[in-house]
Write a protein that binds this DNA or RNA. Sequence first.
RNA 1: GAGCCACUAGCUCAGUCGGUAGAGCACAAGACUUUUAAUCUUGGUGUCCGGGGUUCGAUUCCCCGGUGGCUCACCA
Length: 506
Amino acid sequence: MANEELNQVELNQLEEEYNELIRQRIQKLEELKEKGQDPFEIVKYDRTHTSKQIKDNYEELENKTVKVAGRLMSKRIHGKAGFSDIHDRYGKLQLYVKIDNVGEEKLKFFKSLDLGDIIGVEGEVFKTKTGEISVLVKDFTLLTKSLRPLPEKWHGLKDPDLRYRQRYVDLIVNENVRDTFIKRTQIIKAIRKFLDDRDYIEVETPILSPIAGGAAARPFITHHNALDIDMFLRIATELYLKRLIVGGFERVYEIGKNFRNEGIDVRHNPEFTAIELYQAYADYNDMMELTEQLVEFVCKEVLGTTKVTYQGTEIDFKAPWDRITMKEAVKKYAGIDFDSIQSDEEAREIAKKMKVEDELKKELKDCNKADILVALFETYAEKHLIQPTFVLDYPVEVSPLTKKKPNDPAFTERFEAYVFGREIANAYSELNDPIDQKERFLQQLRERELGDDEAYMMDDDFINALEIGMPPTGGLGIGIDRLIMFLTDSYSIRDVILFPTMKPTK
RNA sequence: GAGCCACUAGCUCAGUCGGUAGAGCACAAGACUUUUAAUCUUGGUGUCCGGGGUUCGAUUCCCCGGUGGCUCACCA
């Protein structure tokens, strides 16, 4: 086949695969290659300053020559001159190109650049007559040819599907998205600082594990070929971290992903980031203080204030937070006093009267006082807990890793922290009695046999660790994504996860 | 997993009571040496999400499917 015919075939393929805008850009790239100016052959560019450095040090840099680099985001061409904006990681920087400085050929090249191209620029720092700090271009280099057009400059990229699937585009054109993810990094950094300053050590425990323990959730199952065993992605870090308390580390934490094979919505992503920490010789009261101080510190460090507005509601994270027991909350918001309820039968009558049957996970007849207390709490109380509030003392049945209250063994030393009606933290005085723990696991196994596929799995080695001996210990878990949602006023968890889980497109 | 809604140019969106479609931005050509959503003139954007049905004719109506959003369920 002749070359001309080959080229025609290639052109036809381009026609099919790409629209006109992309073909034009590919054409421009081809012309550059023919002239020996293939931008993709360039391996580096030594810039001297970022946009921020130039703006922060204008007095010093005025009329000095600098080299900057970034993505071309707008062009305003006026014949023999033109203005243009490039963006680097710190923001926008205006360029001024004049034929007097670059010559006719280079000006023509500049005009042919497309929005989205990445360029390196050498020029002098100056202020325009409107006062904008800019760079007067003396020379520039095309470092990367962008082959696809960017979204519209005024409205940005709005389509949620595209924003999540092509986060790189979202980040280029939506400044608030960049800000959110920079804050995310700062929040996690502040958490580490707070804990490191208090002598906690950060550790890494297995994500891939033969037992998915430490929480009630459906796990992802995978397979290890060489060992020929099924393995689970972790649903929590709890049981490994407590082993390290047994090992004598005394204060440990881990920030990492957990994986739960459950639904996706504005508050749930199958993989999400949590922190868990454990402190020997402490109880859940210590964990409460630690939680409110940690969050207060993070707010001040990242936002400079403890007050945030979330979806139009002001929330103040300043410590101390409100404390209320689950029973008190149900009494306050549902009007039911559980201290006066003697039997499961009586509780079931209440459940019917209060219309919480649909909230129950089992048939009403199989429910006990604890199940109904929790259902009433979730139905009537949760939504009122707008300002940060610790809900204390959960029933033992729903807390299989928690110490019972010494004076009230039907309840446990456990709290969850609520903000805006949502749980953001969960903490216990950790159960360290190996015999009790084994019984609780066995109870969970019975629940599993009754069809609860979220019941806890038996972990014999964890029992072994407790038999070696774990000191009295306080433990705390915080949903990092949710905390970030509050501190960045994000409605959906997908807005604080760079690449949220999406169904693949065919 | 269920219900409701959306899907039209690269992007943001109009529109067609059923007769194959428009605007702005972006793009192309021209004018313009301090603009900043630059401006002015001119021009072309397209599997109207996919498949089937009804119809002389479907982007539009109906059914099935895809992806997403919201609400609910599960859950943190």
